[in-house]
């Protein structure tokens, strides 16, 4: 972390074009996408389905090499997945069903050479942070969807990654739970101050969760705008400024939509 100063970005996405194969087509998911992520930022990738936002996140995670451009973390080109970029997925089955909650959180640390005692205490600490101390010995199938996502967040945080990647983590939750989870995530960020990349298709979620929103246009994904919204949170949801920003983003997405058809 030492070589990353306040002015140089932690993650650089530079002119990245991503393609993947389906049985019939070669799909271009993003076209020459560039943006930076600084230490401690909460960057939200926002766009309609088909804008390649999840694909960009997978590329940052190291699952997909760019066909053009490059992605760097602390000036190192990202070549493969690794524990310095922990990921929280949308699907509830991201937890390993054969391990207890505590073992699930401790497992990535054990894989990466953290001693059993330390992994255990860090797991308990992380689970306490997401209010799941009572459930450390439960198996994932006994938990509700929201609790499973909290475990996944605890698992990622306990690794102390350089960047936390979240791929629509709350999309499969009901509205009330989602709201609660967003508040908890922001609380956690206030406590620890990690760097977050968060993918969503909800404008409101983007503004509430993010400090900076990268708006993407679809088919193929390109950066449409980068907007600051650190000053807008839950408390400002009814404010005219929040509404104006939401309207502006909505117009961008809607215009692009009209162009695409």
């Amino acid at each position: 972390m030492s070589q990353v100063t306040a002015n140089s970005p932690l993650v650089r996405v530079e002119g990245v074009t991503l393609q993947y194969k389906t049985p019939d087509h070669l799909v271009t998911a993003t076209y020459r996408v560039s943006f930076d992520i600084h230490q401690g930022e909460r960057v939200v990738l926002l766009g309609p389905s088909g804008c390649g936002k999840s694909t960009i996140l997978k590329a940052i995670a190291g699952f997909m090499p760019p066909v053009e451009g490059r992605i760097t973390l602390k000036d190192q080109v990202i070549a493969s997945p690794g524990p310095d970029r922990m990921m929280v997925f949308q699907e509830f089955d991201q937890l390993l069903p054969w391990k207890t909650v505590r073992a699930n959180v401790a497992y990535p640390m054990l894989v990466n050479g953290v001693s059993r005692d330390e992994a255990d205490s860090r797991a308990c600490e992380a689970l306490a942070k997401v209010n799941l101390s009572k459930f450390i010995d439960a198996y994932p199938h006994m938990l509700s969807g929201g609790m499973k996502q909290r475990v996944a967040i605890a698992r990622a945080m306990a690794m102390r990654p350089d960047v936390l990647l979240m791929d629509e983590p709350y999309a499969a939750l009901d509205a009330l739970t989602r709201r609660k989870m967003q508040e908890e995530l922001l609380q956690l960020w206030d406590d620890i101050g990690f760097t977050l990349v968060f993918v969503t298709h909800s404008i409101e979620e983007a503004i509430v969760v993010g400090s900076r929103v990268v708006v993407l246009s679809p088919h193929p994904g390109q950066v449409r705008a980068e907007l600051n919204c650190d000053h807008l949170g839950f408390a400002e949801r009814e404010s005219p400024e929040f509404g104006r920003l939401a309207g502006r983003i909505s117009a961008m997405l809607f215009d692009d939509h009209a162009v695409a058809h």
Binding site: A61, P81, P83, F89, D93, Q94, L96, Y107, V111, N112
Partner: peptide, 20 residues
Amino acid sequence: TQRMAGRTFGLKGLRFVLGI
């Protein structure tokens, strides 16, 4: 999802087969 989770932990090869 479980495969990707395993790989973000840094699991590869035989450890991936045995662990995931």
